[in-house]
């Protein structure tokens, strides 16, 4: 049985279709990422799956239960971090997470433990209004996880985090995942999706454009590889002679060779002793993303 089974979910606001006939199934123990430009409908999709918004069309069940209307059996089993932090006013970080622990009837020790796991023990007595953006976000994530839910929804969990906190959160989510929990998250960081997610869905204009493992998506993009060597190491003319090189450009970083046969080209450069400062850039999820969604700003 799938942990999430959503079929044909749609939501419109006035004449704007925020989510347009989305199907999504998530299996137990999976980490699934939803990517998409601003306004793509990620948050709206998540909120319908969480049971926070009623879909205009479609059906969704979570852990075998219908999510709408408010389902008492479901609430203790899922953990949610909303995109906008939502706290009790004027409570300290510790009071905040203890309150959430009590709401979920989780032990008070779990609250302290989670405060420590997200690195906020030093900020425990700081009021939520005085936390920095990233600290507030970590607290919000801790509040979502304090009752050890089977299924976790995280809406842009790392958007305000510094690189250290981001790596720590990755470790933390991997641990949760290893413990058999299912995670659904949205992110704008492609590296994060590649590292964390078993599968990613790329959304735009309310539709899922692609859904698959990061590797499969990159492979399906079939993008050429770019090989860069340090400036002046290989003359442009000589580079053009190498078989399978389709394009050569001089940039400040060095000479960039574009090819669909990276192995052959690197071998050819090696024979010529022209490998100084070589870097190989194959297609990434970001290339897939930009190829699918274009480069224009979104409203």
């Amino acid at each position: 049985m799938s942990v999430i089974d959503a079929r044909g979910l749609s939501k419109t606001y006035g004449d704007l279709t925020a989510v347009d006939g989305v199907d999504l199934t998530v299996e137990q123990g999976e980490t699934v990422g939803v990517l998409g430009p601003n306004g793509a409908g990620k948050t709206t999709l998540l909120e319908m799956v969480e049971g926070l918004r009623q879909p205009d069309a479609g059906e969704v069940s979570v852990l075998g239960e219908p999510v709408w209307p408010r389902n008492k059996r479901l609430q203790p089993r899922i953990g949610v971090q909303l995109q906008a932090s939502s706290f009790f006013e004027r409570l300290t970080a510790r009071e905040q997470i203890h309150t959430f622990a009590a709401l979920y009837r989780a032990p008070a020790t779990a609250a302290d433990e989670w405060l420590e796991r997200v690195g906020l023990e030093e900020k425990a007595d700081t009021r939520v209004e005085d936390l920095s953006g990233g600290q507030g976000q970590r607290l919000s994530i801790a509040c979502a996880l304090v009752h050890d839910p089977e299924l976790v929804f995280l809406d842009e969990p790392t958007s305000a985090l510094d690189p250290q906190a981001r790596r720590n959160l990755w470790d933390l989510l991997s641990d949760i995942n290893d413990a058999g929990r299912t995670v659904v998250l949205t992110t704008h960081h492609m590296d994060e999706a590649e590292v964390l997610c078993d599968r990613v869905a790329i959304m735009d204009h309310g539709r899922v454009l692609e859904l698959g493992t990061p590797t499969a998506l990159v492979r399906s993009l079939d993008a050429p590889t770019r090989i860069t060597v340090a400036p002046g190491v290989v003359p442009v003319e000589e580079a053009r002679q190498i078989p399978a090189v389709t394009e050569v450009r001089e940039t400040a970083d060095g000479t960039v060779l574009t090819t669909r046969d990276p192995a052959g080209v690197v071998a050819a450069l090696g024979e010529r002793q022209r490998l100084d400062g070589v870097t190989v850039h194959t297609g990434t999820l970001e290339d897939v993303f930009l190829a699918l969604t274009g480069r224009e700003y979104r409203a």
């Binding site: 009790f88 004027r90 409570l91 009071e95 203890h98 309150t99 009590a102 009837r105 008070a108």
Partner: peptide, 20 residues
Amino acid sequence: SISGSPFWALSVAILRGFLR
């Protein structure tokens, strides 16, 4: 320390918010 029922936890949270 906050513990126990959701009702109690909520009441304490609201009262603290008010007093502060």
